[in-house]
């Protein structure tokens, strides 16, 4: 057995944490774009769009992220391609993030008073114009805090990708534990690093909520 100093443990974990950060960013950005498309489908006028978006959201919110990861990992493999873990992890996390963000944002769009729709349509605005100039700017204000708050769930969600073999912070924790036989220290550090990534996000979400909702504050 190699002798690992505490610094060795921490250094290896920090190196792996870069992948957690990268995967979180990719999932969040990709999930936002897909979520935006899903949002438009969900609140759109047609019949097919809302039905599809509703089913999609229900499926992804009603099943474990771990299962979605497994299905992405083994499902892509059915097409005869050799699926690297990062691809399955990224894909599953993007699809999962999109479902939650679309649902969060739908709530924000619906929180805009109905009169705003009527007023803008009485000004002769089309659907897209209404969205662009009237509804989304107001919805955005409401949407920022919960969106930042959800980014914490994305960071934590990346931990599950260790199970399909993507080497990020959690996987590195398991590997370092196997080399050092010090699970208490190692998982303690892993938890601490996750905390350092997530806590600033949680906190800023709370602060933004207080700042942006001044108008709605009732105490």
């Amino acid at each position: 057995m190699n002798d690992f100093t505490t610094w060795d443990i921490l250094r290896n974990l920090l190196l792996a944490a870069r992948w957690t950060v990268l995967l979180s960013l990719v999932s969040f950005v990709g999930g936002s774009l897909a979520g935006l498309a899903l949002l438009f489908a969900r609140i759109g006028k047609g019949r097919l769009g809302p039905a599809f978006a509703k089913t999609y959201i229900e499926l992804f919110q009603g099943t474990p992220l771990l299962m979605q990861l497994f299905l992405a990992f083994f499902g892509l493999g059915l097409f005869g391609i050799d699926v690297p873990a990062w691809l399955a992890a990224g894909l599953a996390l993007i699809l999962w993030t999109a479902a939650f963000l679309a649902e969060i944002w739908r709530g924000c769009v619906e929180s805009v008073a109905k009169g705003q729709w009527e007023a803008s349509s009485s000004l002769g605005m089309g659907y897209l114009q209404q969205m662009r100039w009237v509804i989304l700017p107001q919805a955005l204000r409401v949407a920022v805090p919960p969106t930042v708050g959800f980014s914490v769930q994305v960071v934590k969600g990346t931990a599950l990708t260790s199970i399909i073999g993507f080497v990020e912070l959690s996987k590195a924790g398991t590997m370092v534990t196997n080399a050092t036989f010090e699970p208490f220290t190692v998982y303690g550090f892993v938890a601490l690093i996750y905390f350092c990534l997530c806590w600033p996000l949680s906190k800023s979400s709370q602060i933004l909520e207080r700042k942006l909702n001044v108008a709605h504050r009732n105490h």
């Binding site: 934590k156 931990a159 892993v190 996750y194 905390f195 997530c198 806590w199």
Partner: peptide, 8 residues
């Protein structure tokens, strides 16, 4: 609330 369930 700021650490993954898996790590807990």
């Amino acid at each position: 609330r700021n650490t993954p369930f898996l790590i807990q």
